[in-house]
Design a protein around this nucleic acid. Structure first.
Lengths: 137, 137
DNA sequence: CTTGACTCCGTACCTAAGTACGTAGTTTAT
DNA sequence: ATAAACTACGTACTTAGGTACGGAGTCAAG
């Protein structure tokens, strides 16, 4: 209570993990692979994490849920190195990749949708059009 | 040449792998995890694979590319057990999941797009709006 | 009838993305 | 001032989805 009367938004790894909604070990793992930087260890005591790291971790998690690997997340996060032109180029590449992902998913969605509609006819039927056509998707 | 003058569409594991475009080991792996059934081994000789298995493997690969895990692929493939109603229900759940994925990706795409547009102003600038806002995606 | 290619099978190994564990140090609450 | 809780660190283990390897059997051609 004496020291650090809320000078800056600093957290221990446990607090960070809790507020970011991940495991402590996950943070340590991200540090190991260089995805987030490990704050220097003070001569005495625990490492302090800046509260910005919360957003960073949440970003990682969101990107992951969208199908990006940690490698790709690292690329997304490193867009800041190389000047505005380079950054824009890389962002455009990412956008194209996302576009392809969306198109693939939409195609699958459409296929699935058609199957569901053909199936509407007789719910208790033993014969099922979905099953029949699934192997030919 | 004498035997099996193209009686049925039967293949060795190597032929199957080649035509399906996967590694022999991959097929053996799918068998290990129960994703495709291993044909019985004849008393003498090699196992025969029905050519339908080609389509099955291709289906697995396509589904995987769309972000389904092998676990989910197994679910998709087992949709045939339980009657048409159950099948449709499960297909609808899949569709909802895909819808959410598409929406998330579209949101990310839009964010990225806005960043790219703000960045158009001065390509050689040191200050880069993308970098500034990336942490808040 | 032997050689080369292929199959069978088990086990080991690989990467990605963590999770768990043991020991030692630190902090905090009582 | 001592126990409970937390951090630090290294190492090991886990799951998914394969890939590789080694030895033994089998098949087809020359």
């Amino acid at each position: 209570m004496s020291k650090s009367a809320s000078i800056g938004p600093e957290l221990t790894i446990g607090q960070l993990a809790k507020t970011a909604g991940v495991n402590v070990e996950t943070i340590r793992y991200y540090q190991r692979i260089g995805l987030i930087i490990e704050p220097i260890k003070p001569a005495h005591g625990y490492r302090h994490y800046h509260s910005d790291t919360i957003e960073q971790i949440k970003f990682i998690k969101r990107a992951q849920q969208l199908g990006f690997s940690l490698q790709e997340v690292a690329e997304l996060m490193s867009l800041g190195h190389g000047g505005c032109l380079d950054v824009r180029k890389r962002a455009e590449q990412k956008r194209e990749k996302i576009d392809r992902q969306i198109q693939d998913l939409q195609a699958l969605r459409e296929t699935l949708n058609q199957l569901i509609n053909t199936c509407k006819r007789d719910a208790s039927d033993q014969y099922c059009p979905i099953v029949e056509s699934l192997s030919k998707i």
